[in-house]
């Protein structure tokens, strides 16, 4: 006899996997739109965001229901807590995908600027981070989740590097100032996307290993006041 809890728990898993797949597609499309002027994926990325938002609300309701009705413990509780956190990360990833296509649209006449910076490289790494985070979550792949962290440092470095490249471009060609400003924002958005992928990987570690690794380095010598 299938229990109500099992049924609702499986429904939550299905919902979050569906949301993750859509976000994965959004991110993929947004980077394709950035790389390929002919892709024209602005509308589809934006439209899919409504689905992501609807899944966001649905996951919150499902988690609330499971917590209120069944008082789960151990790995079940960890999954629900992780679902709440990853849901929020995925929703932000979807928003960022929309921001990316918006910025790309605004710089449509200056696409060559993108190729003159390390933005394509940063986009490639970040794309793989998001994909790996989602795959690691769906497959409960601890090693894949941990591998994401290394790339976060690379993306942070590229963020600084691209900022300098664009500032130099503005200094040399003031007529590119507006386009470069959009690209600086775009770079920042991609960096945030990599952060969300890293956060998802930390949540996966909590889910699988019951260890809170978020802020671990920063909090090494820190104690909350009594």
């Amino acid at each position: 006899m299938e229990r109500h809890f099992e049924k609702e728990f499986e429904e939550l898993k299905t919902t979050i996997n569906k949301m993750a797949s859509i976000v994965d597609e959004q991110v993929e499309s947004s980077f394709r739109d950035m790389e390929d002027a002919e892709a024209r994926l602005y509308k589809s990325v934006k439209q899919r965001d409504r689905e992501v938002d609807a899944y966001d609300n649905l996951i919150m309701a499902q988690c609330e229901n499971l917590l209120a009705l069944y008082q789960p413990v151990a790995s079940d509780l960890r999954f629900i807590l992780t679902a709440i956190k990853i849901d929020s990360q995925l929703e932000r990833c979807g928003d960022i995908a929309v921001n990316i296509v918006q910025r790309v649209k605004k710089t449509d006449n200056f696409r060559e600027l993108i190729a003159q910076t390390d933005l394509p490289e940063m986009a490639k790494i970040t794309r793989s981070m998001v994909k790996d985070a989602i795959t690691a979550f769906i497959n409960r792949d601890l090693e894949l989740a941990k591998s994401i962290w290394v790339n976060d440092d690379i993306v942070d470095e590229l963020n600084k590097k691209i900022f300098n490249q664009l500032v130099e471009k503005i200094k040399a060609n003031p007529e590119f100032a507006e386009a470069c400003a959009h690209l600086i924002v775009l770079t920042r958005q991609i960096e945030r996307l990599a952060d969300h992928a890293t956060n998802i990987s930390e949540d996966i570690i909590f889910l699988i290993e019951n260890e809170i690794v978020t802020h671990k380095k920063k909090l090494q010598d820190f104690q909350l006041p009594e």
Binding site: R3, F5, Y70, P72, V73, A74, S75
Partner: peptide
């Protein structure tokens, strides 16, 4: 695992 299975119902 047996404990986990029991406490999670």
């Amino acid at each position: 695992k047996q404990t986990e299975d029991y406490i999670t119902g």
